[in-house]
């Protein structure tokens, strides 16, 4: 009987030790953290892009993120770089990866901005605010992205693609935006990019 108790106690202790070890071992690269390793090459650790051209994925609304990945994978949103990776994300688990990036707190872009361009962009942004909100936070449920603090180069390139009808051709969700942008000069697109990049 005593022997049995010792065995049981040892068993319980073993389970506790194993559970503690598992907890201690849980780190940033477990689970979804390991599935986003390839993203880091362009989008930075945990999606905190530090370059001018690549968007920050940290803090992305899951609805927007999932639409973006699905559109890239289907070729609806044109990107030779993202199409193969979007297909890889679908294989690895879209919901899990979208939830991972949504859970990361966005650190705004540190790319240096021209203060005058930011001010001009602020003035020009009134037509964007109805959808993107006064602080550029967007609308998670409607799939309107949070663009505040994104790198200016990325924002500018996307605006140029919208204007040239090369971003998601035929996508009704962005028809209104394209119509608005047609009348906006390219320089102003740069100003808008600087303004939204400056938002915190």
């Amino acid at each position: 009987m005593t022997h049995m108790r010792v065995l049981l106690a040892a068993g319980v202790l073993g389970v506790v030790v194993a559970a503690t070890a598992a907890l201690a071992a849980a780190g940033p690269l477990d689970g979804a953290g390991s599935k986003v390793l390839n993203c880091a090459a362009c989008h930075g650790a945990a999606g905190q892009s530090r370059s001018d051209a690549m968007p920050i994925l940290a803090g992305a609304h899951p609805v927007y993120f999932k639409k973006a990945i699905q559109d890239y994978a289907s070729g609806k949103r044109l990107s030779p770089e993202m199409e193969p990776y979007a297909k890889q994300v679908l294989v690895l688990g879209l919901d899990e990866i979208a939830a991972y990036f949504a859970a990361q707190r966005r650190e705004p872009s540190r790319v240096k901005l021209d203060a005058a361009a930011v001010e001009r962009g602020r003035t020009a942004s009134t037509q964007c605010a109805p959808c993107h909100g006064p602080a550029g936070k967007g609308d998670a449920d409607k799939g309107v992205p949070d663009i505040g603090g994104q790198p200016p180069g990325y924002l500018r390139n996307q605006l140029l693609l919208f204007k040239a009808e090369r971003r998601s051709p035929g996508d009704e969700a962005v028809t209104k935006m394209k119509a608005l942008l047609k009348a906006v000069p390219d320089d102003t697109l740069g100003d808008l990019a600087a303004y939204y990049s400056s938002l915190r």
């Binding site: 880091a40 090459a41 362009c42 530090r50 370059s51 001018d52 051209a53």
Partner: peptide
């Protein structure tokens, strides 16, 4: 520009 972004990041 994307190439520069890639290099900076990687």
């Amino acid at each position: 520009q994307q190439a520069v972004g890639w290099a900076t990041s990687i």
